[in-house]
Design a protein around this nucleic acid. Structure first.
Length: 923
RNA sequence: GGGCGAUUAGCUCAGUGGGAGAGCACUGCCUUCACACGGCAGGGGUCGCUGGUUCAAAUCCAGCAUCGCCCACCA
């Protein structure tokens, strides 16, 4: 093995082997365990959120696979309608063409081409992450099977009256020229204005003043509303006002929607351009005048002067014209929330159009019930509140989109405007008796991307066919996803799953993880120039390439210099190659329940070092065990040393921690348990303690065999424990170590995950090992604090202590001699006078190191005083507690007893140290 | 307006009723035959604030402050 761990050389090698050998496919045996990957955009690239999510899923998948479950991780990608269409349109624009210059078919063909070309990027990046998905089963939301599922769902829901078509006010994107759902609208609070406008009465006397944030929409007003109980305006109700600039006469109506306290208490009503006004308009049967084109320019319903004007130009024109006529009373500053399209970034316009909708209410009820009844569990649990709140107030879902890339709506129209819904035109003609002479045209619209995503847990398994996969893996085990798509996706999968799969939930658990943020807690985004590419953390990247990546293709190119500056400051030497395992381990360690994670470069560096530590531990083990007797022959006697028994006990405890941490989705705790065991116990103590056994010619063969066997066995088990988090380095090492432990196989992936009870927990060994460690640490502390070089051999004098201490020392003398490096160890007898010494305590046992020529008197006084001070503080606290009668009377006996014992022990130590201090002072 | 969450060492975070913890960073010593991506030792925190419950509060309750996120039609 190389001296330094080099991830690059092992990662691609192993992934290829695993994939080629079909290691990722379900075994067909055991309990089914299934995770559906949240399908990334097929044309997308891997970002930190994916990498985080994939790490968690892969850890769960590998853990369950090793546990012997019939494990499926279902991969696939999403066609991501609007997002993908936008990308291709941008490419066309760069060529100077618009999609409207192409036919629809040509455009869609072009998108498919782009999909074929770029579709491998994200799946290959997924491979770099080590994701053990079953590629044989890979699906795409627009492939044939899934499209069939989409049509099936549409037809069924339509038959059941749960999908309908109608003219409604929807969120309209004026640049994309499509409706979007409520969820795709992002409200941003912005500073703006309120304009107070005067509408003159038709009878020629006076005016009412209305307040609005959208003066241009006044061209489509069809009423003015006041509150029915507002005494100020009671006599106005029923009167007519003249709508300025248009000359139209519109009524003053009464509606409870109006808040008399706000503004003037009079509201202009524009039913075709405001959601509230729409509702008022419906209640009062007001005309709905649409004044916008699909580009949000004034259409022919507006006065001639404004036609063709963009909505913002129209606003200026309307305001200045009203002002000229003395109809602008005042302008106030105002903060309002403005709706933006989450994809296009432009202001969304409420717009009256024909659209398809899903009646969400009836689907929401069972979805709420399933979570309430505990059939689906959210982790962490507080997300249920968010989930309930949304579903309890759910609005009908607008599912039609006026774009070209997506599942075409399976509805056909005849010339008379009748609509027929079916799986195909053929089926529609047959079932409705429409001959070939009847012209039918299919609805031009496509479905919201999330419509097909909602079916993902069962469409990927073959639904609507009753496949074996569907029977085996549905309901799936757990969904791993971010909170940002609980509404978009999670809730809709639950609704669709319960409805179409006979009331069966799509997954039993939902693990919600946080967002990955940059080192300052900011969201990573291209425009902020703070994006980290997981692949760059794996492979490393030089500064120039990183700058290039971060500053090209910016929406706002003027930000480039500041991005460059910040990048140069943070990564003066670019980014080092940390490898997949280190990246994955970092994500696991940061995956605490339900909060965002701040990605810290220090962490990944630390965990890369951890990989190196594991690597070098393996090197040491191999050097001492390869081609040697590791106790595989059961006929040979094997004797386990104290450190052997101790590390096996610690392994057992670690195994227990890991199993329960993973079962409880506490990947941070799992990572910590692995780290501590490997580094602080196995490497820092056990490997060191194996040296005196293996290198001592006095050790028996049985002892050496026992130690070699324990070295390889514990490492081998530890590799299996670590494998779900660090698949590559563990596989690479395991291939060498496995045979020495007698557990060879094709791959560590298919080895059993260590289970509790496989090794014995030996409390006596743990206690004795603690004693030994304390002894060694006591000597080390004196050395370090007295500036005695670690190599310098010291005479040790032992005083006090029990027979047990004597026995322990004799049993473990070789460890003490190896790690504490004494020149000699001498027990003082009662009455012996100790020379001036520095002191360490191991319980009642006093370790003395004579100061002659080595230790400065003043330094030892300082050291002892500090030590006593610390302990005395604890004694005082504890004695205070015990002096409190209420404590002694009311606290559980065990707690009181523990406190007594602790104080007694501390006190004894303080006394010992004090007498030592006195002795030294007296010198 | 409603909901959720955060506030613990310089930084990133664990800890949810009984002795304040980890990693990184920092200090000192050490080129010891697995590893300097290392070893040994060490320094560092009135656990946001105020009250309450309790024998006992970082931990439970109430209030406050600051920061974040989500939802909501007040023109």
């Amino acid at each position: 093995m190389e001296k330094t761990y080099d991830p690059r050389s092992i990662e691609t090698k192993w992934y290829k082997i695993w994939e080629e050998r079909g290691c990722f496919a379900p075994s067909g045996k055991g309990e089914p365990y299934c995770i559906m990957i949240p399908p990334p955009n097929v044309t997308g690239t891997l970002h930190m959120g994916h990498a985080f999510q994939d790490t968690i899923m892969d850890a769960l998948i590998r853990y369950h696979r090793m546990k012997g479950d019939n494990t499926l991780w279902q991969p696939g990608t999403d066609h991501a309608g609007i997002a993908t269409q936008m990308v291709v349109e941008r490419q066309l624009n760069a060529e100077g063409v618009s999609r409207h210059d192409l036919s629809r078919d040509d455009f869609v063909r072009r998108v498919w081409e782009w999909k074929e070309k770029s579709g491998g990027t994200i799946t290959n990046q997924l491979r770099r992450m080590g994701a053990s998905v079953d590629w044989q089963r890979e699906r795409f939301t627009m492939d044939e099977g899934l499209s069939t599922a989409v049509r099936e769902m549409f037809v069924r829901l339509h038959q059941q009256g749960l999908i309908y078509r109608g003219k409604r006010l929807v969120n309209w994107d004026p640049t994309l020229h499509t409706a979007v759902s409520d969820l795709e609208v992002e409200n941003r609070v912005q500073a703006g204005h309120i304009w107070h406008l005067r509408y003159p009465f038709a009878d020629g006397v006076g005016h009412v003043t209305v307040a609005t944030t959208r003066p241009e929409t006044m061209l489509g007003d069809t009423a003015v509303a006041v509150h029915p109980d507002d005494k100020r305006y009671a006599d106005l109700i029923g009167k007519e006002v003249i709508l300025p600039l248009t000359g139209r006469s519109i009524p003053v109506i009464a509606d409870e929607y109006v808040d008399p306290e706000f503004g003037s208490g009079c509201v202009k009503i524009t039913p075709a351009h405001d959601f509230n006004d729409y509702a008022v308009g419906q209640r009062h049967a007001l005309p709905m005048i649409n004044i916008f084109t699909i580009d949000a320019k004034i259409n022919e319903s507006g006065p001639e002067k404004y036609r063709g004007m963009d909505r913002f130009d129209a606003r200026k024109a309307v305001v200045s014209d009203l002002e000229a006529q003395g109809l602008l009373e005042k302008i106030e500053s105002h903060k309002a929330s403005i709706p933006y399209g989450d994809r296009s970034g432009v202001i969304i316009e409420p717009f009256l159009t024909d659209q398809w909708f899903v009646r969400a209410g009836p689907l929401a009820e069972p979805a709420i019930e399933a979570v309430r009844a505990g059939r689906i569990r959210f982790i962490p649990g507080n997300w249920t509140k968010t989930y309930y709140e949304w579903l309890e107030n759910i609005q009908d879902w607008c599912i039609s989109r006026q774009i070209w890339w997506g599942h075409r709506i399976p509805a056909w129209y005849d010339d008379a405007g009748h609509v027929y819904v079916g799986h195909s035109e053929h089926e529609v003609r047959e079932s409705h008796g429409l001959g070939p002479d009847v012209p039918l045209r299919q609805d031009e619209d496509v479905l919201d991307t999330w419509f097909s995503s909602a079916l993902w847990p069962f469409s990927t398994l073959g639904w609507p066919n009753d496949t074996d996969a569907l029977k085996t893996f549905y309901p799936t085990s757990v969904l791993v996803t971010g909170f940002d798509i609980i509404f978009f996706w999670v809730a809709r999968m639950i609704m669709a799953g319960l409805h179409l799969m006979d009331g069966q939930v799509p997954f039993h658990e939902v693990y919600i993880h946080g967002l990955v943020r940059d080192q300052d807690g900011n969201k990573m985004s291209k425009s902020k120039g703070n994006v980290l590419d997981p692949i760059d953390l794996i492979d490393g990247i030089d500064l120039e390439s990183l700058l290039q990546k971060r500053t090209t293709g910016l929406m706002q190119p003027h930000l480039a210099p500041s991005i460059e500056k910040a990048t140069r400051r943070q990564f003066p030497d670019g980014i080092k190659a940390y490898g997949t395992d280190a990246l994955r381990f970092t994500f696991a360690a940061l995956a605490t329940t339900g909060r965002d994670i701040i990605f810290d470069m220090g962490r990944i560096e630390g965990y890369r070092n951890f990989c190196n530590k594991l690597w070098n531990a393996a090197r040491y083990v191999l050097m001492n065990t390869e081609h040697q007797d590791t106790g595989l022959n059961p006929a040979d006697a094997v004797e386990l040393s104290l450190p052997d028994r101790w590390i096996l006990s610690r392994l057992e405890a670690t195994t227990q921690s890991l199993n329960s941490a993973i079962e409880g989705y506490r990947f941070d705790q799992a990572a910590q348990a692995i780290y501590e065991f490997t580094w602080n116990e196995y490497c820092d103590w056990y490997l060191e303690l194996s040296k005196p056994v293996l290198n001592d010619s006095r050790s028996s063969d049985a002892e050496k065999r026992g130690t070699r066997r324990t070295l390889v066995r514990v490492l081998e088990s530890n590799l299996r424990l670590c494998h779900p988090f660090m698949p590559y380095v563990t596989e690479e090492i395991w291939q060498r170590i496995g045979p020495l432990a007698g557990t060879a196989g094709d791959t560590i992936m298919h080895q059993p995950y260590p289970q509790m009870g496989e090794t014995e927990s030996d409390a006596i060994a743990i206690a004795e090992m603690d004693w030994t460690k304390n002894f060694i640490m006591g000597v080390r502390r004196i050395r370090a604090e007295m500036d005695i070089s670690p190599g310098k051999q010291l005479p040790l004098l032992l005083q006090g202590g029990t027979d047990a201490d004597r026995e322990r020392l004799e049993r473990n003398r070789r460890y003490v001699e190896f790690l504490a490096r004494p020149e000699s160890i001498t027990w003082l007898r009662d009455g012996d006078v100790a020379p001036e010494s520095a002191t360490a305590l191991v319980g009642d046992l006093k370790i003395l190191i004579p100061m002659a020529g080595l230790i400065d008197k003043e330094a030892e006084i300082v050291r002892l005083t500090k030590e006593i001070g610390k302990k005395q503080t604890d004694v005082d606290k504890g004695e205070g507690k015990l002096a409190n009668e209420s404590f002694v009377a009311k606290a559980p006996a065990a707690v009181v007893e523990k406190e007594r014992a602790r104080v007694a022990e501390l006190k004894a130590a303080v006394d010992q140290l004090n007498s030592q201090l006195e002795k030294i002072r007296a010198l």
